[in-house]
């Protein structure tokens, strides 16, 4: 299980870092720029720091990370399990008394939780750092002021929301593709249908978690 977990973490997290860093950097500077210009337009300059923190840490980072991992690893895992099912490889594991949950499912779910959580934190850090570039050119604020502005406004609650949402997203991002792959029929034409259904269910689940978290935060 340790080896499978290591491989899964490598493919889900490490393999995604280069693309992820570029996307986080581009989105970070553009989106924080848009937030700042809108805040300025509507005279909300005093709240820019808390708007950035709430938007980046609580909402954008975990949700965007979960979407990226769903697209990259969710589809791969759904297809992998569906093919294993079709090729009777799951039958082999049963026949040789290798526990499917311990060997196949648990390492993927744990890697999903670790990946989404760690990449969400990374995404938030890169976004906030790249956002500084925009602030530097737009407002001319120095880095020290920007840093202390954000640190002052971050609360423990924000970090807890980021972690809880990331864990929930990570769990769902792996569980639904695994379940969908496991339920694939015995024909090759069932594989695309399984991936399609799995991804639709996954996106609905991700949006549901996002909406629920927004509702909880509004209360």
């Amino acid at each position: 299980m340790r080896m499978v977990l290591t491989k899964q973490i490598y493919f889900t997290t490490i393999g995604l870092i280069p693309l992820f860093t570029i996307i986080a950097f581009l989105f970070g500077s553009v989106i924080i720029g848009v937030v700042i210009s809108l805040a300025t337009k509507y005279n909300l300059q005093d709240s820019i720091d808390s708007i950035i923190i709430t938007f980046v840490i609580n909402e954008f980072a975990p949700f965007f990370t979960a979407l990226l991992i769903s697209l990259r690893s969710g589809t791969a895992i759904n297809t992998e399990i569906a093919i294993m099912n079709l090729n009777k490889e799951l039958n082999t594991l049963n026949e040789y008394k290798i526990d499917l949950i311990n060997y196949l499912f648990l390492p993927r779910i744990i890697s999903g939780i670790i990946s989404v959580t760690s990449l969400s934190v990374l995404f938030a850090l890169i976004m906030l750092s790249s956002g500084y570039l925009f602030i530097l050119f737009y407002i001319g604020m120095d880095f020290h002021t920007y840093k202390s502005l954000l640190i002052n406004v971050i609360e423990v609650k924000d970090v807890i929301i980021l972690l809880v949402k990331s864990v929930a997203f990570g769990f769902i991002t792996m569980l639904i593709p695994i379940y969908s792959g496991f339920k694939t029929g015995q024909s090759f034409t069932d594989i695309p249908i399984s991936v399609l259904n799995g991804m639709v269910k996954l996106f609905i689940a991700l949006f549901t978690i996002e909406v629920l978290s927004l509702l909880i935060q509004l209360q």
């Binding site: 080896m3 992998e80 093919i83 294993m84 090729n87 009777k88 490889e89 039958n91 082999t92 594991l93 026949e95 040789y96 290798i98 526990d99 060997y103």
Partner: peptide, 21 residues
């Protein structure tokens, strides 16, 4: 035919998995 090797493991890993588990 119903107990094939695991396609995402190499031959050595397919054998070793039994002792590992």
């Amino acid at each position: 035919k119903n107990t094939p090797l695991l396609a995402n493991l190499n031959m050595c890993e397919n054998i070793a998995i039994i002792k590992e588990v």
